[in-house]
Nucleic acid binder design. Structure first.
Lengths: 214, 214
DNA sequence: GAATCAACATACCGACCAGTATGTATGTAG
DNA sequence: CTACATACATACTGGTCGGTATGTTGATTC
């Protein structure tokens, strides 16, 4: 190695680890492959991260967190929240559709693989999901204040269901490696989002009631 | 071994493999642990299954398929489909809630782990999901004929969204290891199911239109 | 420019794992 | 009773993996 740039080294390890985890999962991710792809040696890796788990944690805390922020927090910061979510959903659909074999959502893939096996992963991933839900809930509240979202909607509950449904739709498409499933599910989700919209003609019978459980 | 019962041997291997996969995923499943738990030797295992993958395939074809059939096909074979689905959802909620650390849905766990990595798994799992969707769609059609389900509902699309949302809800609860998330999501799903119900007072504005994509 | 430390580099280790080679015992058909 | 196939049992192998011990080099400080 001619010149040294520890920050860049760390960053390239993180990104390669993210890609490796995206393709093979955390447990299927091989440090040797990450090192080969980055031209970093094992000594350098273990200088920046104490062990494989720490590398995985950092991927959640830095890469996946930023990913959700870019996709779901920033775009919903202003404008009509329902419209913005429909746009984001469309973008996400295009991203999913761009792969030959659908790999799904990196965050949810890791969540489903590791949540039951390691509380360190679980808690870190839960933080990112909570951030995501918070972004949607806040946007919906703003929509209520601006008159674009029905006032009897429980924004926290709606946000939780939206996130669950998004991951469910992506997972369904991945299971069958079939975009038609993605579009069909997306239609169901769109229908739900539309039911949150304030409209002078609509009846409140199908709106999300202020309810906490069951 | 005193007496021989090859069918029982095979069955116990299948069930132990299912449990091992449920807890650690297919790739995390260890043949040694399966053998230890069943008191079967490696020679016997490789007599019944050519390799680990064949064992995994058999778990999908036999165990997981039966599981979905028992939970989602048989109960929906008669009666009001919406009510039956709400009951099934309740039962499934109880099952998920019975674990200290939530492991989620065995079918979807395996689907998310393996679909992008192995087409053999993917196609077998897709068959089970298709069976599931078909059971719901058929039940909804019967509901339409009997007057309990809105006639303008696209039953295939609704079935697909229901399956996706169910898995999304379970996955969300697993991610946070939080039953509150399960109940919140379940409320959203219940709301969607209720929107499919035929009712003299309801307006059709939120019903699932006859649409194919987008 | 000597000392020091962060930032790498290389070689090696023990554990685990799927799979195999080879052998043995049990049931069954003639 | 013999022959043979099914149903097991045991011991071993090659490969991959995460992790470590130890050595080297580039940057920084005084």
């Amino acid at each position: 190695m001619l010149i040294r740039d520890p920050d860049a080294t760390r960053r390239s390890l993180l990104e390669a680890a993210f890609e490796e985890i995206r393709l093979r999962g955390y447990r299927g991710a091989s440090l040797s492959r990450i090192l080969a792809k980055t031209d970093v040696t094992k000594g350098a890796l273990y200088h920046h991260f104490p062990d494989k788990k720490a590398l995985g944690y950092a991927v959640v805390d830095e890469i996946l967190r930023d990913m959700i922020h870019e996709k779901w927090i920033t775009p919903l910061a202003e404008g009509n929240p329902i419209d913005r979510m429909l746009e984001t959903l469309h973008l996400e659909g295009c991203r999913v559709a761009s792969e030959k074999t659908l790999t799904g959502c990196p965050l949810n893939n890791l969540a489903q693989e590791m949540s039951a096996l390691d509380t360190g992963f679980r808690k870190r991933i839960a933080v990112v999901f909570a951030l995501w839900r918070k972004g949607i809930s806040t946007a919906l509240q703003r929509g209520q204040a601006e008159g674009s979202v029905r006032r009897n909607v429980d924004t926290d509950a709606a946000a939780t269901f939206v996130v669950a449904a998004v991951e469910g739709c992506i997972g369904m498409a991945k299971s069958g490696n079939d975009l038609e499933l993605l579009y069909t599910c997306g239609a169901g989700l769109t229908q739900y989002l539309e039911s949150l919209r304030e409209s002078d003609l609509a009846t409140p019978s199908h709106a999300n009631k202020q309810q906490k459980r069951r």
